[in-house]
Amino acid sequence: MTSMKITRRTFLKVSGATAAGTIMGGLGFDLSPAEVYAQELRIKGAKETTSICCYCSVGCGIIVHTDAKGKVINAEGDPDHPISEGALCAKGASSYQIAVNPHRLQKVLYRAPYSSTWKEVKWEWALEKIAANIKKSRDASFMEKNAAGQVVNRTNGIASVGSAAMDNEECWLYSKMLRALGLIYVEHQARI
């Protein structure tokens, strides 16, 4: 018998032949899978809210499941969404972590010029600081006329990069604001 060559194929045949023996060996004692997986479907009874993936311009549909306390417990593709029909790529599939992730920043951090450390600041302070910096840069770099004497009213000292996470209306508002400031370096990372 030891010289018999057993391939994967014959191995499976052997297993079939001994199936009766295996059942007897088990003596009918077996835990039911229901016992192992006694817990209910973890999104049973959860509230479902539809949303759009924030990552790229494809705009796949997402269903967000929240528990009774409003905590996000799951997020997965929305099968009824005409664009994605329930599918999500790796980034979309991880969207649950936008809400639940201990590694996310909870407070605004600020690193002063020439400093090597971050310090916590308040939102109000940060917004004021950003506004002040924009004003300072704009005042310093604003150009009313170009070298040829034509009126251009532009701000060469500031550029904007982003954001694919914004929806159509937000993009319009954002673009409007940047043009009003006189920015010409407006770049939008539209995918990935």
Partner: peptide, 18 residues
Amino acid sequence: TRKMALKRLFQPLTSLRH
């Protein structure tokens, strides 16, 4: 795989012993 297959072959005997 081969070891397993042989073990299976003898399993009815071991079951009987049990």
